[in-house]
Write a protein that binds this DNA or RNA. Structure first.
Lengths: 112, 112
DNA sequence: TAAAGCTATCTTGTTTTGCAAGATAGCTTT
DNA sequence: AAAGCTATCTTGCAAAACAAGATAGCTTTA
């Protein structure tokens, strides 16, 4: 039995939108960037389905491009809708982070 | 269509353990405390199943007590196992919060 | 005393999220 | 031609959370 809770749930989508917002990226690259940012253990079985869903919902759009060193890559960029969604997620994250932090990191003599 | 992502997923369990760790509480009270801490929109359809699961997993234990003003209440407290689990979740939260924050709140000229 | 309202717990069914595992295929190196 | 890397996508599953509602005790009000 493991106590490992699934803390990532729900925010991965926002992190992906945020990375795509900076620059066009393709899925494989995305998984490396997430890793670089400290989000380890995010498998491609998570990333690709999210990308497809975001595309289906119109938040990102993809475009195949040839690579000089391997197979074709599908580069994604945010749509206007996606930018709006990202702003909302950033706002929600701020509102969530504070209370959770108070709850999980407070010392014994904090507010009850 | 709504962009509302489910940011809470995964950390609610930790927040509940954290509150119970402070003092014995019952489910109904818990939902009010979560609200007070800024975690709105957490329904009892979320809270009670989590309490039952935590109890089944041996992280908390419950005890019925009469109330002077209403129906009986089931007060919960952490077990040793539960205290250990809470420490792990607090650690995970710290490790998760930083990268997500960098991703979601960074300004345009931050690290790429 | 009967009805309404509040407190309190729990269940059922559904949706969303994420992951493990693996299928597919192009390109490069050996 | 075989092996290995890059790259995308699919299938099937489990966990998490919620909406909605069932149940029931207690208190207040009419």
């Amino acid at each position: 039995m493991s106590f490992r809770s699934q803390l990532l749930k729900g925010i991965l989508e926002g992190c992906i939108l945020s990375i795509i917002n900076k620059e066009m990226v393709y899925g494989y690259e995305l998984s490396q960037k997430l890793q670089h940012f400290g989000l380890h253990d995010v498998s491609e079985g998570s990333i690709y389905p999210i990308l497809l869903r975001l595309q289906k919902d119109g938040l990102i759009k993809g475009e195949m491009r040839a690579s000089s060193t391997g197979p074709k890559r599908k580069y994604y960029e945010l749509t206007n809708l996606g930018e709006k969604a990202l702003l909302e997620i950033q706002e929600e994250w701020k509102n969530l982070q504070k209370p959770v932090d108070r709850l999980l990191n407070r010392s014994v003599d904090d507010e009850r």
